[in-house]
């Protein structure tokens, strides 16, 4: 269970997130939607502390972290990050490492796994994402969709408790988008705990157990797709259907 309590984040004078309360259920897929600039991505980045919240608490399976504007210890940050896997909009693969090298980097450097063991597990992941034959390719030799699938495997290699996707297909054309979305869907069906920020409403409908609608830094409504689709709030209904 991942519990976010009273979380706020400001950049300078602008408050991006205002007193967010959110419980992310294990083995569920939570989709965060909302207009641009609403704070969706910042919320996701606060979960693995790429952004440090100004106030509030994060509680991942009993590991609690409180924020009060003071410096958070590096050790606490790293502990939390090891339990979360992040997939970025721009993939952010390491260009100087092969697909395999990208995937084993975390297990070897952070988890201190022996190299042959890390490689064995990486090959399994490569099979899972259907890119075993690309293990020795460098990122620039791969298509955007393949790069993002490798990035997903890299996140999975750390065996995280929770997988975070920040607009994972925004940088892809519709053709390549499909292969990434179907992989995420597969992971969702395998009951990984997933949080996705996306603008793809049809995809949100398909994979989500819970949808969070966020605007101006506040959670306006949350529930299943059907529940939100019958929300008395016309704006949410419009939003859900506008992008289909």
């Amino acid at each position: 269970m991942f519990v976010i309590k009273d979380l706020s984040k400001s950049f300078g004078d602008s408050r991006i997130l205002k007193n967010i309360h959110l419980t992310i259920k294990p083995n569920h897929t939570t989709v965060i939607i909302g207009p641009s600039g609403s704070g969706k991505t910042t919320l996701l980045r606060c979960i693995n502390l790429l952004e440090i919240p100004n106030s509030g608490t994060l509680d991942l399976n009993g590991d609690k972290l409180s924020f009060n504007g003071e410096r958070v210890s590096k050790k606490d940050i790293l502990t939390l990050r090891k339990k979360t896997g992040m997939v970025f909009q721009g993939f952010n693969l390491f260009p100087h490492k092969t697909a395999l090298g990208n995937i084993i980097e975390g297990p070897i450097t952070v988890l201190k796994q022996p190299k042959d063991e890390a490689i064995k597990e990486a090959i399994k992941l490569l099979k899972k994402i259907g890119l075993e034959d690309k293990k020795d390719s460098y990122p620039h030799q791969l298509s955007g969709g393949q790069q993002q699938r490798i990035a997903i495997a890299r996140a999975l290699s750390m065996k995280p408790d929770i997988l975070l996707f920040d607009e994972p297909t925004s940088a892809l054309d519709p053709e390549l988008e499909i292969e990434v979305l179907s992989l995420i869907k597969e992971l969702s069906e395998e009951n990984y705990t997933i949080v996705i920020v996306t603008h793809k409403m049809s995809f949100a409908k398909e994979v989500s157990d819970t949808i969070i609608f966020i605007d101006k830094g506040e959670i306006i409504e949350q529930g299943t797709y059907e529940e939100l689709n019958e929300s008395p709030n016309a704006r949410i209904r419009q939003f859900l259907n506008a992008f289909n």
Binding site: M86, F88, L93, F94, R154
Partner: peptide, 25 residues
Amino acid sequence: KGQWEAGDSLGMTYFQVLRRIILPQ
């Protein structure tokens, strides 16, 4: 900046990201 963040998100320390990801590039 995404290279730093990718390393950070794997739970690497500042010097691990620097040595293994940033400096080689």
